[in-house]
Every structure is written in structure tokens, then in C-alpha cells.
Design a protein around this nucleic acid. Structure first.
Length: 213
DNA sequence: CACCAGGAATGTA
DNA sequence: TACATTCATGGT
């Protein structure tokens, strides 16, 4: 159990409003207009799932390049990914890097949602904790990717922790323990349990920290 | 040419 | 638990 001072919680809330005032609603920015869009239909949920893999250790510009190539081949669909040879997927997603690994990971996720669940909408019937456990069982899905999917595709209130969030937390002295679960608790304890706030806050942190190099 | 970009899995101590 | 290494590309 993470115990924070009221002071620190207040600081996390204040930082959120500062970022919101500084950068505006993430849904209105080009980079985050899609991930922060809500609600999402099945096709849009599948796109988030696919992008959550492509974005691993990749610059967003190259992810978009890979996405547009997948779109041209009608492969922004988990069903179609499942019936396409890895070689073709590898070729199309090359710009995002790590393409051999990522093609396998896309297949793993597609297998889970299409064959395991019987369609991405079936995920809506699962509780957040159950869905996260199942996602983590998939080879190629760790805490961050699982939470990206939970928060942005399925609008579940889980706070996503990434490298930018760690830098942000260090910079503002929010914590010095940077493990995933600990940091997630710090943010979730400080904020109202609201997926919209979590979506926007994470996006704002990325926008803010990207601008500082 | 060196290093990074919205990680995860595996191995080691 | 906490690090180190591997994967492997395009941009700066």
C-alpha cells in the first residue's frame, strides 16, 4: 500500500491542471487526437491495439508510417492480420523497427482477441483486472502495453507509466522509486478514478517531456 | 558515426 | 528485486 501525503497528491493534481492549461486538450493535438478520442468503435479499438505494439521503442512518426502501409493492405484489422503471413507484415511495419518481433506480437494479440475471446468486443465483458491478467499472458505484452490497451482502447481507469512519466516524476520529486506498480499507485491515489483524466494526463506528460531534451 | 525513440523477455546477481 | 542484454530500424 502506497501512502502519500495530501501535499503530494495536491501537487499531482496541480501539475495536471498546469499541463492542461499549457498544452490544451490532448484530443485537439494531432499526435493524440486518435488515442484520446472517445468513445471508440471496434475498428478504432483494434487500431489502438495494433499501434500499442508498433509504438514499442519506436518514434511515433515511424509508427504512423507503418500504420499507413498496413492500411493500404487492409491490415488494420486483427482478423486480417491473423490470416496474413508474417513476412508480409514484417515488410509493411519495417519503419517502426524491431519488425520481426513486432509481427509475432501482432499475431499473438490478434490470436487472443479474435480466436481467444471471439472478437474484440468480448473484452468489454471482462473486468479490468481479469483483462489485464490475460493481456500480460500474451508474449510481447508487458505492463505498459497492457495498460495502453486498457486505458485507450477500452477506456479502463489504469494510469499508464512510461519513460516520460518516470522523468516527469523525478523532475517534480513525486517519488524516487521508479517501479511500474509503485508509480502507478502514486498517480492513481492522487487522482479521481476517471479514465478521461488518466488518458489526458498521460498524453500531456508525453507532450510536455518530449519538448524537453 | 553515435545515439535515441511512447518496451518486453530473458538471464544474472 | 534490480540491472544488463538482445531485438534491429529510421531519424537527428
Amino acid at each position: 500500500m502506497v501512502v502519500d501525503s495530501l501535499d503530494k497528491k495536491r501537487k499531482i493534481i496541480d501539475l495536471y491542471y498546469n499541463l492542461l492549461e499549457k498544452h490544451g486538450e490532448p484530443a485537439l493535438t494531432p499526435q493524440w487526437s486518435f488515442w484520446c478520442k472517445r468513445p471508440k468503435n471496434s475498428e478504432e479499438k483494434e487500431r489502438i491495439v495494433i499501434e500499442s505494439i508498433l509504438t514499442q521503442r519506436a518514434n511515433w512518426k515511424n509508427v504512423e508510417l507503418a500504420v499507413s502501409k498496413l492500411q493500404k493492405s487492409n491490415l488494420m484489422s486483427l482478423q486480417n492480420i491473423l490470416s496474413t503471413p508474417n513476412k508480409k507484415i514484417e515488410f509493411l511495419i519495417k519503419p517502426s523497427g524491431f519488425y520481426i518481433q513486432k509481427a509475432k506480437r501482432l499475431k499473438n494479440l490478434a490470436k487472443f482477441f479474435v480466436k481467444g475471446l471471439g472478437g474484440i468486443e468480448k473484452a468489454e465483458t471482462l473486468k479490468t483486472a481479469e483483462l489485464k491478467i490475460k493481456l500480460l499472458e500474451i508474449d510481447g505484452v508487458g505492463d505498459e502495453t497492457a495498460d495502453d490497451i486498457l486505458l485507450y482502447a477500452f477506456e479502463r481507469p489504469v494510469f499508464v507509466i512510461d519513460e516520460y512519466t518516470r522523468r516527469f516524476a523525478l523532475k517534480h520529486n513525486l517519488t524516487n522509486k521508479l517501479t511500474y506498480h509503485h508509480m502507478q499507485q502514486i498517480f492513481e491515489n492522487a487522482l479521481e478514478k476517471d479514465y478521461k483524466i488518466y488518458q489526458d494526463y498521460h498524453a500531456l506528460i508525453v507532450i510536455e517531456m518530449k519538448g524537453q531534451k
